Amino acid sequence: MKLDLSSRVAVVSGSTSGIGLGIAKGLATAGATVVIVGRKAEGVDSAIATLAAELPGAKLRGVVADLSTREGVDTLIAAEPTADVLVNNLGIFNDKDFFTVPDDEWMHFYNVNVLSGVRLSRHYAQTMMAQGWGRIIFVSSESGVAIPGDMINYGVTKSANLAVSHGLAKRLAGTGVTVNAILPGPTWTEGLKEMLADAAAQSGRTPREQADEFVRTSRPSSIIQRAADVDEVANLAVYLASPLSSATTGAALRVDGGVVDTLAM
């Protein structure tokens, strides 16, 4: 099975680190011209340098934009007016008690995790429809299905990703543009490492050991009993971005290590 994206331009939001950077790497490996997007120039430059070193000859471009705002989305669109593949990966998370999260933090999560993808999809889907081909992918989470009690605001936004993705797939029926969501479980990224830093310091475990312990204790239904690696998540996104996924749309595809204990989804 050859995943060939050599004639395609892919925009990946939140792609300077973590899952977003992993997806960008996978798309570049498949031959796509990949647009790295981040809030800070140093982050964008660093990500491009990292990928260029790992993938000599990769076709990479960068845009600095804060996609949590309408103005930031406009900046990206002005720099990259069209795309064949859009990966709505940008997202933030934390573990806070419901009663300590104020309104402004709820709105910030919604702007970052939901509206960024809505705004980008609203623009790029139109040019995809005009050419009769396109791929839109929302990076949701298993937390959007099984909302954790200590990350309710995050889980709600990830549920919204699933709703937007499924509805937009219906809206684009018959156009040649597919829309899907992927649902990662806990994944070994710098974000997870930072979230668990205090626990690792107290336990004496390495950061990776603490991440795997977090999965076993906080997500005990996990079948793999560990945090996933970024590449394991990125592989699914690259397949969905490829021409080979043409009959998959309106789907929520799990790459959660079996955390969600159900026969469907």
Rank of each mutant, 00 (worst) to 15 (best):
Y239G: 05
A228Q: 13
T157S: 09
L67I: 13
V139G: 00
D261C: 01
H123L: 10
A228G: 15
R122E: 09
G132S: 13
L236P: 01
D261V: 07
H123I: 07
R8A: 13
L162I: 14
S222W: 11
V215A: 06
L236E: 02
A83F: 02
A30V: 04
R254N: 07
E190R: 11
G18D: 03
L168P: 04
E71C: 03
G43D: 08
G57I: 01
V11C: 04
L192M: 15
L115I: 02
S15N: 01
S246T: 11
D104W: 08
V12H: 03
E194S: 14
G176P: 04
S218P: 00
A163K: 10
N161D: 14
A78Y: 02
L172V: 11
N111L: 13
G38S: 12
D66R: 03
F109A: 08
G14A: 06
A53N: 10
L5T: 07
I136E: 01
D66G: 01
A58I: 05
V118A: 12
G22L: 07
G204E: 09
E142N: 13
K170R: 15
M1I: 12
D231G: 09
T189S: 02
I19M: 10
G26V: 06
V118F: 13
E142Q: 15
S17Q: 15
V177H: 03
L76F: 11
T29D: 13
G204F: 07
A41C: 00
R122Y: 10
G134Y: 05
E71P: 04
G117A: 10
V179W: 06
S245Q: 03
V37G: 03
H166M: 15
F214G: 11
G144I: 06
T175N: 08
V164T: 14
A58T: 05
E42N: 14
G43S: 08
L90T: 06
N113Y: 05
I92M: 14
E71R: 12
Q131G: 12
A28W: 09
G185M: 07
S140K: 09
V12P: 01
E213L: 13
P102T: 05
V12F: 03
V9F: 00
V260M: 09
G204K: 09
S140A: 15
P102F: 06
A83W: 02
T187P: 12
V260Y: 13
D256H: 12
A251C: 06
K96F: 09
K40L: 00
A228R: 10
A241I: 08
I19S: 05
G31V: 07
L3I: 13
Y110T: 14
A160S: 13
I19Y: 06
H108N: 14
E232C: 09
L27Y: 00
V87Y: 03
D97A: 15
K96T: 12
I92E: 05
T175D: 07
L120K: 01
V44G: 05
D95R: 15
D45L: 04
R208P: 02
Y154W: 07
G258P: 08
G14S: 06
R219I: 00
L55S: 01
V145C: 09
S218L: 00
D103N: 12
A30Y: 04
G257L: 06
N88C: 10
Y110C: 12
H123M: 10
A146Y: 00
G155L: 02
L55D: 01
F93C: 00
K158M: 07
